[in-house]
Design a protein around this nucleic acid. Structure first.
Lengths: 127, 127
DNA sequence: ATGAGTGAACTATGTTGATAGTGCACTAAT
DNA sequence: ATTAGTGCACTATCAACATAGTTCACTCAT
């Protein structure tokens, strides 16, 4: 499968971000085994060495655990994942607001644009 | 001046983005002369060749105009700048909402986080 | 006319990311 | 014990980015 990567950022970082999102979203459950280096490399159409860098990075930020000879697994530390979820939210939100401020947009402009573009957008609370 | 650049994206692209923001924001007025290659290079602490790539890119997207022997100027086409302002807004907003969706956040979660982090944040409409 | 300042074009070097390929060490199932 | 599957560790090559440095052509003020 030929994947869609931006040329303006290293592939391994784009993959790290993608996997973090999938984990936070719940597509990958705590403790679940991730594809092997070679399988993942085939799936996303990159070199196994690149995937190894990704898994090493995921382990560095304590999102995945690697067991030699067995594979790489999503961490089973659920509190870590909840923390990651909150960290990611904060970093994305602050980066977004920072961009808006740097471009001189007003609160009203931002809120209006957010409402316009969420038509077929975010899910609602189940409640 | 030693500037703060991320290592995860080419410097010239970071500079392009920064300048676009300043132009959209109004820090750089339509028709205003921008610093020369060499001056800009010194200001931001990069190589003149890198700045040249930046100016070439700004010209490619019709945000700046270059007059050989004179310098590089912010385009005086104000409608182009208004269009750029709207384009940037849309691209940032849709990217943000896309990220939020990919991480499985609900509309309520996003709105709450936005409100929490805009404490000392965006300017209000003058009205 | 001269010279300072400008963008443009070129060569060369070093670093990083991505690739290809090989081999090794460990684990689990057989 | 053997084997298949795993992560890990290398070497080597290529392209893109950033740097350093030089030269050229153009514009403008003097």
């Amino acid at each position: 499968m030929a994947e869609d990567f931006t040329s303006s950022q290293p592939i391994y970082l784009q993959l790290v971000e993608r996997l973090c999102k999938q984990i936070v979203r719940g597509d990958l459950s705590p403790g679940e085994k991730m594809p092997s280096l070679r399988d993942m490399a085939i799936q996303v159409g990159v070199n196994p060495n690149t995937v190894q860098r990704v898994y090493t990075e995921l382990e560095r930020i304590a999102v995945a655990e690697t067991r030699r000879g067995q594979g790489t697994f999503v961490t089973s530390d659920e509190s870590r994942l909840l923390r990651l979820r909150e960290e990611l939210m904060v970093s994305y939100v602050t980066a977004f607001l920072n961009d808006m401020r740097e471009m001189g947009f007003t609160l009203q402009e931002v809120m209006r644009s957010l409402k316009e573009h969420q038509a077929q957008g975010l899910p609602n609370d189940e409640r």
